[in-house]
Amino acid sequence: MVSLVSGDSRQSDYPHSRGVVAGVVDPEMPMLTLDDLGVIRSVSEDGGAVTVTITPTYSGCPAVEEMRADIRRALTAAGYEEVQVRTVFSPAWSTDWISDAGRRKLAEAGIAPPGPAPTGPVVLNLAPPAGPSAHVRCPHCGAPATEEISRFGPTACTALRRCPACREPFEHMKEM
């Protein structure tokens, strides 16, 4: 069995399975590929059989089943006869695994990319909301400070914010 991980340029008789999987897009944020999102843990090939391991972004992410189906379709269409897609939970996915290209594409689509994921103990924050915060830049006009409208956005991984400069609302991918 040959293990193909990110960056491996090994050739085979089949189209490069790692490349095929990497190009599958996220069902909820189609501007990102699964590679951009950082959810592909490994792709291994054995003749015509491919085993793909992915990790969910959130425990209850409803897109995981669609990701699995899309990976199976893409690999089958590329000529692979046996495809197995497994999901592993550990180590837990972090927004730090989103690629630089992925962050750029998020911003271009009007979604503020996440900052560095928090580390260490969970902080109990009792301070009242303090207005615009400089940790999220407006993806529309580039203003450096924006304010939070809601901690939970239309998908589990985003929060809603608004820019005091251009008045536009936007989504921010939460640090996780």
Partner: peptide, 9 residues
């Protein structure tokens, strides 16, 4: 074959 055409639209 480009696999990313699957359902991107």
């Amino acid at each position: 074959m480009n696999a990313s055409h699957v359902h991107t639209e």
